[in-house]
Design a protein around this nucleic acid. Structure first.
Lengths: 216, 216
DNA sequence: GCCGGCTTGGGAAATTTGCCCGAGCTGCGA
DNA sequence: TCGCAGCTCGGGCAAATTTCCCAAGCCGGC
């Protein structure tokens, strides 16, 4: 890792949209102390670029399709636990934010924030601090949960029911598969929602899919 | 409308992410012949900015949340049928592309295209030509060959609601996004289920995902 | 033995779903 | 031009489900 104070902050940009990367690059480099040393448009390349360039900060969007964004974070951190990763995305769902921090991200900024928010977040993250945009802080506060990364808080039965539900099974089907009363399955359904913070069945399905519980 | 040949091409940028706009502005203005004369971050402002600046080309993302993107296109075209509108978004679903052209767009470029694709598309559109990026052409071609997915039986509104629902939005959120009553959204929800044959919300999400309406 | 967590379900209020209805609007063909 | 068909929008109401709160049995750990 380079000497931040003397040479500025080296940044690896990861976003799947080329023009978006190019735009960010210009915005960041106009700051003077921020230098984009590499770009990547997918998780695998991001890991490769990280290994060869060892940037101070990784700014990563990857739009979080699937768990590949989270995997990228985990991969990078596995290689270098001191790596600073700033997630910069349009998503603002609490489950995603928590998953990102749980995977080892140092910051989370939404694209709807002021442009300066990313810049200051990069500097904060480079100093080893945790950073997030105001809206994310608000969302996490609302979420007001302490537990771990979504599925970790679920028991075996709950995960099994979530899997079947996300796979498209009806409550009755799940009940008969598992030899439970419909009422119990309904209760689990509710419990899972509250534990994961999902407000909607659709969010539940997306959560299950992004955790690899279900393939779509 | 200004004289394109002599003064270059004036552009109105519409995107809901400030930093993205700032990035585009830098990329476009580095071209010399492209001048960003105004920006907007929502459909209403886009219409207002169009009225006051009368740009040669409107580059519009708005991320298509709700039909507001399509409405913006229709509004602008209603005011000036010669308006050139280039949709520039991360979405690449055939239904959306067709809807955009149907609403009066002159071009459709995805953000995953090469940065030069937008620039050349803007010039094409300014000349009155139709423009689309290679991936969009490919998707439309495939689409025209396939007999039709389950989504073909759905109307524009239904598809929009399905997209938002599958994306994790609650009934209330969808209703307020689209300015509908909750009841209407509930009815659409039901209608979509019966039309697609989905028995469960989870099945609906999976259907939307498998049709490319939503990325998980 | 006791505490805490998982699993299983009851109960009742609140909400949503399932279906049927009508009305306004638009485009299209007779 | 008329009328039909389809989309959009919402009311109504019974039936179903969700939401929460609660209790009880079981099991592992301290």
């Amino acid at each position: 890792m380079s000497d931040v104070a003397a040479t500025g902050i080296s940044v690896l940009l990861v976003d799947d949209h080329p023009i978006v990367r190019q735009g960010y690059r210009r915005v960041l480099e106009s700051q003077g102390d921020l230098h984009v040393v590499a770009e990547a448009d997918n998780a695998a390349d991001a890991y490769g670029a990280f290994k060869t360039h060892d940037p101070d900060v990784v700014v990563l969007d990857i739009s979080m399709p699937g768990a590949s964004g989270l995997e990228a974070i985990r991969n990078i951190r596995a290689r270098n636990p001191r790596a600073r990763i700033l997630v910069f995305t349009m998503h603002n769902e609490a489950v995603l934010v928590k998953a990102a921090f749980g995977a080892g991200a140092s910051g989370f900024v939404t694209k709807s924030s002021e442009p300066t928010a990313v810049v200051t977040a990069i500097r904060s993250v480079a100093r080893g601090e945790r950073a997030m945009s105001d809206d994310i802080a608000h969302i996490l506060a609302e979420d007001s949960l302490s537990a771990g990364s979504a599925l970790d808080q679920l028991g075996e039965r709950e995960i099994e029911i979530l899997r079947q539900f996300a796979g498209g099974a009806t409550t009755e089907q799940i009940a008969s598969h598992l030899n439970l009363s419909v009422k119990t399955v309904q209760n689990y359904h509710y419990l899972i929602k509250t534990k994961t913070g999902a407000r909607t069945d659709a969010q539940l399905v997306r959560l299950a899919a992004s955790c690899g519980l279900t393939k779509i």
